[in-house]
Design a protein around this nucleic acid. Structure first.
Length: 215
DNA sequence: GGCCAGGCGGCCC
DNA sequence: GGGCCGCATGGC
């Protein structure tokens, strides 16, 4: 596990994920931008999400207080480029209310995770992304890329559950927040560049060690 | 033009 | 517990 990380890191370097839209954000602004980003990026390419985030930022809407005051229809219009915009607009409203009405900072990671999962629009990956990137809790984020890469490498089956794959990482790595953040981001990078749906194994940096070699 | 993107909820069985 | 569907834009 650690060796794969080190190889990725030495090849790609740090990924600088989140937050990226606002200049010199306060702590609150960082948290809201990250949480909003996790919702918008669900099954959507990051470029489309960036446009939506910039639109929100121009309208001072990377803020849960302001989202709460804004009509769903207006939000939907502004985030149109991120796809599923009606659903996502609804869910931004829900999470804004949730954030404003709850003091989340005192909860344990477990408690916070369970609370997040009660929200419509927040599943395993989104909850863990929020925990790790917005609240700096040591939890490893699994996504479809992670599963694809590690099943191809031979570490797991393709039908492994979210929890099982997450445990595999958590049990074999130090609980290091910086490491968890970078590792997930680096896996996304690898999946986009080499370990695609139609993989580019010959060029891939893991072509020698990976079990599944596609032509 | 088809496929895919940093998923999720609501169904159904 | 799994399998399928709707949600939707934009880039390649």
């Amino acid at each position: 596990m650690k060796k794969i990380y080190e190889k990725l890191y030495s090849y790609y370097g740090p990924q600088k994920w989140w937050p990226i839209i606002q200049k010199k954000p306060t702590k609150q602004q960082k948290i809201s931008e990250i949480i909003i980003g996790t919702i918008l990026t669900q099954n959507t390419s990051w470029k489309n999400v960036e446009k939506a985030l910039n639109n929100l930022n121009k309208n001072h809407l990377l803020s849960f207080k302001n989202i709460k005051k804004t009509k769903t229809e207006k939000l939907a219009r502004l985030i149109k480029s991120s796809g599923y915009y009606n659903q996502k607009a609804d869910r931004l409203k829900l999470i804004a209310d949730f954030y404003i009405n709850n003091d989340l900072t005192k909860l344990s990671t477990e408690q916070l995770r369970n609370k997040l999962l009660t929200l419509k629009g927040v599943g395993n990956e989104t909850a863990d992304s929020i925990l790790l990137y917005a609240f700096n809790r040591p939890i490893f984020v699994i996504d479809s890329y992670t599963k694809r890469i590690f099943s191809r490498m031979g570490f797991c089956n393709n039908n492994i559950t979210y929890e099982e794959l997450q445990n595999l990482f958590m049990q074999n790595l130090k609980k290091d927040i910086i490491l968890f953040k970078e590792y997930h981001a680096l896996l996304v990078k690898l999946a986009k560049e080499f370990c695609k749906n139609k993989p580019l194994c010959k060029k891939c940096i893991f072509s020698k060690s990976c079990k599944k070699l596609f032509k």
